[in-house]
Amino acid sequence: MTIRLTEIWVGIFVAAGLAALFMLAMKVSNLSSYSQDGGYEITARFEDISGLKVRSAVTMAGVRIGRVTAIGFDKDTFEAVVTMTVEGDYNTLPKDTSASIYTAGLLGEKYVGLEPGGDETNMQQGDRIKLTQGSMVLEKLIGQFISRFLDSDKEAKN
């Protein structure tokens, strides 16, 4: 095995390894939708954000237009403060856009869905979404359902 042949094989090996890493980064991971230059930040406050995480998706009309970048807590109003970065391309969001927290699929993870309002001026860096709907907590829903069921039952009996 000459030195030359060995070197060629090592070169092939390193190239294959780098190619594999590249493939993993490009085709397998979310690198392609990763570039966030020119994004702008907006905030929204929610009563309940259970399950929403940093890096959860922010969508409008089902299309992902940004990500949750920070989750905080307001000690005075006891609300959750969610900071989102919207990609720079999507800068025509009306100022009265509303935000709700949905679940992807039945047991899936939470994401923020934005619905456009009718305002003519657009959202800028640092703006706040006023209308929000917190995440649906399963237990509360079941509780509501049961109490409503019991109420109607009572009415029926009377």
Binding site: F13, A16, G17, A20, L21, M23, L24, V28
Partner: peptide, 15 residues
Amino acid sequence: FSMPLLAAIFSAVGV
């Protein structure tokens, strides 16, 4: 040096 490259190749080929 070789291990990370081999692991990447393994994962890529596995996918």
